[in-house]
Design a binder for these strands. Sequence first.
DNA 1: GGTTGCCTTGACGTGAGCGTCAAGGTTTAG
DNA 2: CTAAACCTTGACGCTCACGTCAAGGCAACC
Lengths: 129, 129
Amino acid sequence: MRIGELAKRAGTTTRALRFYESQGLLEAQRTSNGYREYDDHDLRLVREIQSLQAVGLSLEDTRPFVACLRAGHESGDSCPDSREVYRRKLAEVDACMERLQTVREFLLARLAFQDRCLVPEPKEFQCSS
Amino acid sequence: MRIGELAKRAGTTTRALRFYESQGLLEAQRTSNGYREYDDHDLRLVREIQSLQAVGLSLEDTRPFVACLRAGHESGDSCPDSREVYRRKLAEVDACMERLQTVREFLLARLAFQDRCLVPEPKEFQCSS
DNA sequence: GGTTGCCTTGACGTGAGCGTCAAGGTTTAG
DNA sequence: CTAAACCTTGACGCTCACGTCAAGGCAACC
């Protein structure tokens, strides 16, 4: 299949697929006229990337999973590097929730008592998912 | 005081202060040679902005608080618009924590059972603080 | 008069993950 | 023959809160 069909079947755009290729996450055969040609294995890769992004992993973080699938494993997260990414992400999520809990309490306190002026110390931690 | 001293006393940079001015958050008197001149009231404003940013509010969201202080209130969050920002942010935080909880459970499950292939549906919600 | 250390405006860079043209080639339908 | 619907590469745009030059003016000290 060509890039348009792959995009449609994966529910994404051709631009995203070309971007993945530029990042070395996706490779493609080329037909004689220069068109990219994909198969079901590539569709699987794209779906893996999307799933991981949906969990909040960066594209960079999906790299080990893709490599794992390419290496022939049936599941992208059965390789040590992938599992390490999971563990790191889990730690990030925990830290993020802790920080959000603090923020939440601060907001509640501010909403409850109007004239207080307690402010939490700035933390450098960046919380996103 | 001039911009350098204000930056030092607020623990930020001159660039940040000029940026706040460009966003209409901070105003400054000008001396005859064109230098910006600030007073303690401005320092208070900057500190308010920093506190709110530390909680995860965007610069845009700090606008009502600054306006509230400018209007003469002793606390930036005693005005309706400010409190509305608090409420909205609280809702965002709650949604974010809920989402993180889902992600967390997913990660734990994946780490526990290697060969499963359940993936949560992609959510469009953007979670950051 | 030269150096240092402030200050000014303006403009481009940063990161992530693409979106959105632009300008053109290829294949198929009518 | 032409239009539609694909495809190609390249390059700039977007968000956010500034960082980082660049080029120059102002003030004080030796």
